[in-house]
Computed example of a mutant assay.
Amino acid sequence: MSTLIKRKVAMAALRADDAQGQPSIHSIRYRKKDGTLGYKAHVSKSFRHLPGASKYRGQVSLNHEFLFRNHDESDPAQQHFRILIDLLVEVDGHIIDHTNGEYRS
């Protein structure tokens, strides 16, 4: 059975570096815009700017998205991708609680 973790705990885990100062590797499950679920087994945070008119801003609260690097993708041009934070469902098998506790019983 999966455990429930708060959104800010999930974001902190995704931003954490390992003991050597490299981004830590995680598995994520996310909801795609068409409603289906997506899964990536080996991702880490990324600091690379994606092509386009606007650049990725490092302060997550301003852009509501997280920039990842997919370590299972062999094509370097396809390794970096963005996911809206609200569409993240699971990190490392832990279900993300996006409610901030407003629905407590």
Rank of each mutant, 00 (worst) to 15 (best):
D97Y: 02
L84F: 02
H80Y: 03
I83T: 00
A16H: 09
D34N: 09
F47I: 10
I85N: 00
S74N: 06
R31T: 15
L14M: 09
K33A: 08
Q59W: 07
G101Q: 07
I25T: 13
L14I: 10
K33R: 09
D72V: 04
P51I: 14
I5M: 13
G52I: 06
K8L: 14
Y56D: 00
E102P: 01
D75A: 09
K8R: 14
Y103G: 05
A16P: 00
N63A: 03
K55Y: 15
G101S: 04
A77H: 15
S46N: 02
R31G: 10
G101A: 07
A19V: 11
A13S: 06
N70H: 12
E90Q: 14
D17G: 04
T36P: 03
R48F: 12
L14Y: 03
S27M: 08
R48L: 14
I83E: 03
H98G: 06
A12H: 10
Y30R: 08
I95E: 10
E102V: 04
H64A: 04
D86L: 10
N63F: 00
D72S: 04
T99C: 02
H64W: 03
A53N: 06
D75E: 12
Q59A: 11
L67Y: 01
A19N: 11
R15P: 03
D34K: 04
D34H: 05
K33C: 06
R104E: 08
Y56C: 00
Q59P: 06
P76R: 11
A77D: 11
T36R: 06
Q78T: 05
R15A: 08
N70C: 13
Q20N: 14
N100M: 13
L87T: 02
M1S: 15
S105D: 10
G93Q: 11
I25E: 11
A13I: 00
H80R: 01
F81C: 06
T36E: 08
R104H: 02
S105G: 02
V9G: 01
P23D: 04
A13K: 05
N63T: 01
V89H: 05
Y30Q: 06
K32P: 03
S46E: 04
L50S: 13
A12Q: 09
D18P: 04
L88S: 03
K40H: 11
L84W: 00
D97T: 01
R69H: 11
V43I: 15
L62F: 12
E73Q: 10
S61E: 13
Y30H: 14
V89L: 11
M11R: 02
F47A: 07
A19G: 08
I96P: 01
S46D: 01
S54K: 12
T36Q: 05
R69Y: 01
V9A: 10
I28R: 01
G58S: 10
A77N: 13
G21D: 02
H26M: 04
E90M: 14
I95M: 08
L88K: 02
A16W: 06
A19L: 09
R69D: 03
L14A: 02
L67V: 08
A53Q: 05
R29Y: 13
H42D: 09
T99E: 00
E90V: 07
H80T: 03
D72E: 07
Q22Y: 15
K6D: 13
G35R: 05
D86R: 12
D75G: 07
L67F: 00
Y39Q: 15
S54F: 09
I85K: 01
L62N: 12
D17Q: 10
P76G: 12
